[in-house]
Design a protein around this nucleic acid. Structure first.
Length: 418
RNA sequence: GGAGAGAUGGCAGAGCGGACGAUUGCGUCGGUCUUGAAAACCGUUGAACCUUUGCGGGUUCCGGGGGUUCGAAUCCCCCUCUCUCCGCCA
């Protein structure tokens, strides 16, 4: 939800929304509705004030006739008030509905344009040539990823992860949690089933409803990311400014229907319905959220770089940002089999957009202000596994375990073909 | 799955048609006292929105929605949620 006061007062705020592809006509319509609503609100409040005073007066009248006369008079006025209130409610609803479609304005540093107009921030590591086995084939060769039998069990886009890959996964999780702990993140295991209300408040419903698994009988929904559960953690709360930033690292399984992706990334672990992820979530002082975004990016680079994966960082262009993000970095790892960079993690600053819906505020000396929220992937486990499978693959198909992970899986240095 | 209880300000907990934005306690903040602190005592303390240069003024909010009434925290209806007991269970 955007800030209507800022919309009417700050040109830059409007410009930031237009950069995301909203026409100025729509914005002007919002401003018109807002103007009309506020003036009607003033009128109604004045009438209420009169009605309140009149009702109080009745209580003070002792004389029965006087009392009855006053009551009759009040009921006439009350009918008029009722009409005015109904009109106001309609107007309010129209305004809110349109305002809800407005995206969070993008930050001035975001490049303008669509999907192809990202800005490359930096590139690290070598773009190696295609390996002997792509990530799907190598999983099979090593006997650590079984998608064929998973189909029989659960359908396409599911996988059995087995053997040394499980040890590798656990090592990845442990190392990632240790890494983010260095930066003050508290690990959290979140619920994976949440109420519909949380999906709405977190901004996933109604837009992404078809991407979410529903447990119909209990009206619960499987989360696609622990961001949902972490965003709701301090709902309706007031956090003291001196306690900020509050940093969480959520570890959970994530569930996505991947509707509309038929035929894309069908092999291996790249795009599956269920995967595990460590997700960073920060509640930040509004004054300092941009520093936090840089911290998230730094951590993500430390993690991907620490795993010795070649990557680049891009700033996503305005038109390709979701509704909530004011700015977003994507980390893309070189996928040798496809000879291109593909997304592994990302981080965004939602500024106050999500907090407004969640009603999460910060107590400051100057009163309560909306908290800023940010999120970023620390490690998408499945996807990271496959980048390791390709980038650390030897000519015979065996896969070297990144050095930093070896202390977390003692004795496992290479996964050999079976 | 069965039975019952409840939802009020930061927390606890009164109020059960007009003097209630709400008694009281704790907590908060300020003061007196003290070398300092504690204790004690005195005072202070909800939020959102509209309006105003400011002082201020107004509206709304007692889980949510609807209803009765001139007037609702209080009466009626619906919904949601929470807790307790029994049963089952990693």
């Amino acid at each position: 939800m955007i800030d209507l006061r800022r919309l009417r007062a700050e040109q830059a705020y409007q410009t930031g929304i237009e950069s995301k592809g909203v026409s100025s006509d729509v914005i002007n319509r919002v401003l018109e509705l807002d103007e009309a609503h506020r003036s009607a609100l003033g009128a109604v409040e004045e009438m209420r004030s009169e009605a309140n005073a009149a009702a109080k007066a009745v209580g003070k009248l002792k004389d029965k006739d006087e009392r009855d006369a006053k009551i009759a008079e009040n009921s006439v006025f009350k009918a008029k008030l009722g009409e005015a209130e109904a009109a106001l409610a309609t107007q309010q609803q129209e305004l809110t509905e349109l305002a809800l479609t407005m995206p969070n304005p993008c930050h001035e540093s975001v490049p303008l344009g669509g999907e192809e107009d990202f800005r490359v921030e930096n590139t690290v590591g070598e773009q190696s040539s295609a390996p002997a086995y792509d990530h799907g084939a190598v999983g099979e060769l090593l006997g650590v990823v079984d998608t064929k039998r998973a189909v029989r069990m659960s359908g396409s886009r599911f996988a059995y992860v087995m053997g040394d890959a499980v040890r590798l996964q656990m090592a990845l999780v442990q190392w990632t949690l240790a890494k983010v702990a260095e930066h003050g993140f508290t690990p959290v295991i979140t619920p994976v089933l949440v109420r519909e209300e949380m999906m709405e408040l977190a901004g996933f419903f109604p837009t992404d409803r078809n991407q979410v698994y529903e447990v119909a009988e209990d009206e619960l929904y499987l989360i696609g990311t622990s961001e949902i559960a972490l965003a709701g953690l301090h709902r309706e709360e007031r956090i003291d400014a001196t306690d900020l930033p509050v940093r969480y690292a959520g570890y959970s399984s994530c569930f996505r229907r991947e509707a509309g992706t038929y035929g894309k990334d069908t092999s291996g672990l790249f795009r599956v319905h269920q995967f595990d992820k460590v997700e960073m979530f920060v509640y930040a002082d509004p004054e300092k959220s941009w520093e936090e975004l840089e911290l998230l990016r730094q951590i993500e680079e430390e993690i991907v770089g620490g795993l010795e994966l070649p990557y680049r960082v891009i700033t996503v262009a305005s038109g390709d940002l979701g509704a909530a993000a004011a700015k977003k970095y994507d980390l893309e790892v070189w996928l040798p089999s496809e000879q291109r960079y593909r997304e592994v993690t990302s981080c965004s600053n939602y500024t106050d957009f999500s907090a407004r819906r969640m009603n999460t505020k910060t107590k400051t000396d100057g009163g309560n202000v909306l908290t800023h929220t940010l999120n970023g992937t620390a490690c998408a486990i499945g996807r990271t596994l496959l980048y390791i499978f390709e980038n650390h693959q030897n000519p015979d198909g065996s896969v070297r375990i990144p050095t930093v992970l070896q202390p977390f899986c003692p004795g496992l240095e290479v996964i050999e073909p079976r």
